[in-house]
Computed example of a mutant assay.
Amino acid sequence: MATTDISEAAKAVIRRNTEEVQGGGDYALYDALFSDDFIDHTPQPGRTPDKAGALELYQTLRAAFPDFHAVIHWQAADGNLITTYKTYHGTHKGEFFGISPTGRVIQFETVDAMRVVDGKITEHWGVANLFSLMEQLGARPGTP
């Protein structure tokens, strides 16, 4: 398979994760898309850097923001390593990091790099603008 084909197939896996798992809550698909030896090189606070920890984060986000979804702005590929820039959206209807539901509509940007091997996500590195999210939820002193 040519590098272009590998990259396009890997992009499609990442898009399915973003749209169907994160945005749709399809956790059976999560199990199919993520390798059992998946490692998160940048786990969120309180999460383990493995497949179970990433699933727990996804479930926490959907519980806090039931309409959680992302808009993918662009993806770039270096072989099977896919970088995705996206904006997450949702309405705060459940507890999140100890913050009671506010009903606020939020959005925050994320850049993720994920490696896909044999159709499964094996590694993740990411940076999310959680400062902006916490500010939108009123969790920073001095925010309304």
Rank of each mutant, 00 (worst) to 15 (best):
M1N: 09
M1D: 09
T3P: 00
T4M: 08
I6N: 02
S7K: 02
K11W: 00
T18L: 15
E19W: 04
E20Y: 03
V21L: 05
G23R: 03
L29W: 08
L33W: 06
F34R: 02
F34S: 04
S35H: 15
D40H: 08
P43G: 06
P45D: 07
R47D: 10
R47F: 12
P49N: 12
P49E: 11
K51L: 09
A52C: 01
A52S: 15
G53Y: 06
G53C: 05
L57V: 10
L57H: 11
Y58S: 14
Q59T: 11
T60K: 12
A63R: 13
A64T: 01
P66S: 03
D67S: 08
F68P: 04
H69K: 15
H69I: 04
H69M: 04
A70G: 13
D78P: 01
N80Y: 02
N80F: 00
L81N: 14
I82A: 08
I82G: 04
H89Y: 13
G90Q: 09
G90K: 03
T91D: 03
H92V: 03
G94C: 01
E95R: 11
E95H: 11
F96E: 01
G98D: 07
S100G: 10
P101E: 05
P101V: 01
R104T: 00
V105D: 10
I106H: 08
V111E: 07
V111Q: 14
D112L: 13
M114W: 12
D118H: 10
D118V: 04
D118C: 09
K120E: 11
I121P: 06
T122P: 02
W125G: 03
N129C: 06
S132E: 14
S132T: 14
Q136N: 09
L137V: 00
G138N: 01
A139H: 02
R140V: 14
P141Y: 04
T143K: 01
T143E: 07
